[in-house]
Structures are given as C-alpha cells and as structure tokens.
Amino acid sequence: MLSIKDLTAKVGAKEILTGITLNVKAGEVHAIMGPNGSGKSTLAQVLAGHPAYTVTGGTVTYQGRDLTEMTPEDRAKEGIFLAFQYPVEIPGVSNAYFLRAAYNEREKQAGRPELDVMEFNTLLKEKSKILHIDESLLNRPVNEGFSGGEKKRNEIFQLAVLEPKLAILDETDSGLDIDALRTVSDGVNRLRSKDRAFIVVTHYQRLLNYIVPDFVHVIAGGRIVKSGGKELALELEQRGYDWLKPAAAGAAR
C-alpha cells in the first residue's frame, strides 16, 4: 500500500528526515517510536503533505502513485487520514457539517452520489453509537472548547466516519488519561481491518498495550534505526532510547 524509500525532508533549512525506508501493507499496524525531536511527527506530517515540510529526496509510493506529487486534499480523498496531535478548532462550523463536507469529497472522488443531510446524520448516529460518542458532540463546532481528551476522541470519530485506507495517528495518546486512552484505543481496534493500514506514532509504549502493533520501528536522528515486532516496544520501555543512539550515529556514518 505504502512504500517509502530513502525519504529525506526538511523544514525551513533544517533537515529532519535523513533517509526513511518503510513498507506498509494493507491490514498491518506499524508503530513508530522514538525520542523527542527524532522526526516521528515530521514523518506523519510529510505523509499528509503539510506545506511547511519540503521533501528533498527519496520516493513515497502510495497505491502505485507518487505521493509527493499529490496535494494534501487529494491524498485525503485517496484514503490517507491523519489524526492530528493538536487538532485545530474551527469556530462556528459544526462537527456534522464539517464531516459531511469531508465525506462527500471522498464520495465525489469515488464517483459515488453524495449524501444529503438526512442520510449523513443517520450514518453519523450509527458511528457515534459504535464509538460511544455523545451525540451532542456532533453539533458542537469542530474542536471548539473541547477538552484534550474530547479532541483526540473526535479525531478517532472522524477516522471512523471517513474510513480511510491508511490511518496515521500522530501521538494520539499524548495528554490522555488512562480512561480516555482506553476509549480511543477501543475505537482504533474496532477500525482495524484487513483492508486498512495504521501508522501509529507514539512516544510511549503504553498505547501499544491497547493497540497491539504488528511492527515497531524506532526513529532516531531522522531515520529508522531499529525495527522489530511488538516485543521491541517492551524492550524500549525497559531500556529507554539511549542504547539505540550509537546505532543512529553508526548508521549516519
């Protein structure tokens, strides 16, 4: 589904990604871990097409297409979803309205008829039940006045409604208490399927107790320094990231 090869990217003049290589197949869950400032969130942003980041080398192929040539909105319409670390507030625009606009963009792209307000509300209600989302949230303005936990939950709710092929979760666990973490993880687990891939970016192993990954990758210094199965996360929990740093330095040589 997604093939990243020797990807390098910078923000401003600063090189952040120094050569990422990663293959993701449908149905897989990949965890991206690493210390602060290692480039894990940058990878998420670059895949989504954030304009602040410039790809300077390497290739990213998504479903056979050159991802770097696609606009952010086209990536979204083709099934890439980013759950933001800091979801943005849009005052005065209701969640339901926002989601319907996003949903219908995908339908249009796929050549399917758009849903009207009634049809879409039915869909929203179903989804909100599955994820135990309070219906009142649907009519509140997008993220405005939401608590940290509500914002993250809302991201997962959007994920559920938009049903992407590739979902990227950028530090979805940050700032969540244990109950919220469980709710959010439950939501994600329900959405796992053989057609859908996940890239879960996280600093802590904790989240991976709930969302069990197929692969764990450690990023340091802008490249993947170690890959393994879910047990790698446990090892990191015990030993921290420091023992991998020489490997990063070595790889850079």
Partner: peptide, 24 residues
C-alpha cells in the same frame, strides 16, 4: 495555515475551507 491544512487533510479544498471558516 493550520486550519486550512486541517481541512485539506480531510479532503476539503483551500477555497472550500476558507468558505467554511468564513461562514462559521
């Protein structure tokens, strides 16, 4: 820019995003 990128990431074009934000 963050608001616009957020909308774009959901598949909404810049123009429609501005429209939506302004209407809100």
């Amino acid at each position: 820019e963050d608001q616009i990128f957020y909308c774009k990431q959901r598949g909404i074009s810049t123009e429609n995003a501005i429209n939506m934000i302004v209407n809100g």
